[in-house]
Design a binder for these strands. Structure first.
Lengths: 354, 354
DNA sequence: CTGAAAGCGCTAACAA
DNA sequence: TTGTTAGCGCTTTCAG
């Protein structure tokens, strides 16, 4: 490995001169600077990033703590981060498989957490006496943080409400929801759905909610069985969303629910639901309208193409990095940055209003 | 930030004692060691990973140079790497968006490259005077390296041949191939297909090959148009494979090819082909048999479920890391490690032999 | 058993 | 304009 010392020796100056020449800082006589650059080139010199980091107290690395790498949406967030990080000479590590207590052993300047829930866990686990700046993506979940953490937030309470209003504008009054969580969960999506059903549509709740989990459908043994079977395979959550969507379709069909539309917790689950419900003989959107949340490309390839509430994942990823870097640069603004959603109309919702 | 010096001051010993106590190396009196550990705990001390790296000349980081993060297969490779890396206290950076010349500024001990082609580019670009250990995944492409690079190889010449033999055993004698590359490309898959068609099936080649690229189908203006449209969006290659598969189906249909089976360059392309060809009225596998390569989960959700040649991506990822670490530990064995493939029979191939 | 000292590769304040 | 020096946080001889 070639060091600045080597160059200094070769040229016959001291390391500081070499350093100044290479960094374009301080005074160096033109001839020497040229000579130094030439020799550096010739020797194939590359600055040692570790030494730089030690001295500058900046690793130029960020951790994005994300477990599910097969999820298009997560990766989209990540791509946004990479784009913004690149511009600033930063690198983003993506990993969410290890325990939080490994984090201090990583060479990072800050952490981006994927949602409020995990942020809560993080803060409880090591956030107390560990000091790295943290930024979290957020979907308007109602989670209490012991410390204030800057949020890049897509308000899915508002997003869900917007989606339901859209469905209502198409004549739908009985709108079922499928989810991985139970009806009492504090997911903004669920809360918004409940509120809309109760106060806007004056409908009952219980019959129209399908939460594929122990609490949500505890009297259905398939759920339990399904959950047990799947616990071993923690790696592929996509499969889990998709398959749980299929299971939701089975149950929906069995119970002969009179909903005219179904909204899913996310696109993947909705696509799973769509696949199975079609197998069960439903024509989408003739017999039943379907709407998802996220805006993943698989929705576009679905038959019919899935109408969805698009979350600007890339944008969120970018903003996460921007915010984190601004904190690292000393701007202490603890804040919430909002990122808007948008309904993307495709072919899975039918207008039944006339 | 708490340092060993702080602990030393507090306990009233020197840094070296603290270091020894914390590292369990050398002699430290029991009482002191305990006291030191206690104080370290109390102060919330964490060793500074950058300082460690500088001193040990090991960053404990590996780069996996991969561009397409939405590709299930790539991520599967990555997951394999993570698993193996975790075990050894290593972290794997995944990124393939930046130029090779940024690599020296990264805090890494070694690099894993996704295929022979990129490895060739890497070596040409900076491999000459840059010295980091490199390992490459390989699919038996015929690429010349100026330096020997250890390969973790899935032999897709053999894999393709196996697949074609399987198809033949089901009675297929006219087997088309769809690909992103042209017939003259040195992809093992293409070569194996050509050889099998020529020498085993004694068939012509040109009519049965659909390479969605300028050279391959230069007389089809849609290809050109399609390529131009898509060049802006370099981020989503999945989409590109999938959509090119659809285009291949259009052309296949138009030309009224008499093939009874189609084999795809990979699963994604084959799934795109499947989608469109169904829209065009084909019943799969009644009218046409389909086979892919990779073994991605989407194949399982396809209608019909896709028969494929499964590549053990996770296994390859693991072995890439194992090999790289063994090089870092001084084992100089430059070698090729083979990873087997396996045909996974689902519903997309029909037996027409009787 | 302990601590001083040198060094990993680099920067920056200061003196020359 | 240049070189010396101290120091980033840690490890590792090597005298004591």
């Amino acid at each position: 490995m070639v060091t600045r010392k080597d160059i200094a020796n070769k040229v016959g100056v001291s390391v500081s001169v070499v350093s100044r020449a290479l960094n374009n800082s301080g005074y160096v006589k033109q001839e020497k600077r040229k000579e130094i650059l030439r020799v550096a080139e010739a020797l194939g010199y590359h600055p040692n990033p570790v030494a730089m980091s030690l001295q500058q107290k900046r690793t130029k690395q960020i951790l994005y703590y994300s477990k599910d790498l097969n999820n298009f949406y997560n990766i989209e967030l990540y791509e946004g981060m990479l784009e913004e990080a690149d511009k600033n000479g930063y690198v983003v590590l993506i990993n969410g498989r290890f325990n939080f207590d490994i984090i201090p052993s990583l060479m990072i300047d800050g952490i981006i957490l994927p949602n409020d829930h995990i942020t809560g866990q993080y803060l409880d686990a090591i956030g107390k006496n560990y000091h790295l700046p943290v930024v979290t993506a957020s979907y308007g979940e109602d989670v209490y943080f012991s410390k204030a953490v800057p949020k890049i937030e897509t308000d899915l309470y508002e997003g869900m409400r917007k989606s339901l209003e859209y469905l209502r504008s198409k004549g739908h009054k009985k709108i079922a929801m499928i989810s991985l969580y139970d009806i009492g969960s504090y997911h903004a999506r669920t809360l918004a759905w409940i509120d809309f059903m109760q106060y806007e549509l004056e409908s009952t709740i219980e019959d129209y909610h399908f939460g594929i989990n122990k609490e949500g459908l505890h009297n259905d043994e398939r759920v339990m069985q399904f959950l047990e079977e799947r616990t071993t395979d923690t790696t592929n959550i996509w499969e889990s969303y998709y398959e749980k969507g299929m299971l939701a379709a089975d149950i929906f069909h069995e119970r002969q629910i009179d909903a005219t539309a179904v909204i899913g917790f996310n696109d993947e689950m909705t696509l799973g639901f769509c696949k199975r419900i079609k197998q069960l003989g439903y024509d989408i959107p003739k017999d039943l309208s379907l709407m998802g949340i996220d805006g993943i490309p698989a929705g576009e390839y679905n038959e019919p193409r899935l109408t969805t509430l698009e979350i600007q994942a890339r944008e969120m990823g970018k903003k996460c990095v921007q915010e984190l870097l601004s904190i690292l640069n000393g701007c202490k603004e603890k804040c919430i940055i909002h990122v808007p959603t948008q309904i993307v109309e495709k072919d899975s919702v039918r207008d039944i209003s006339r």
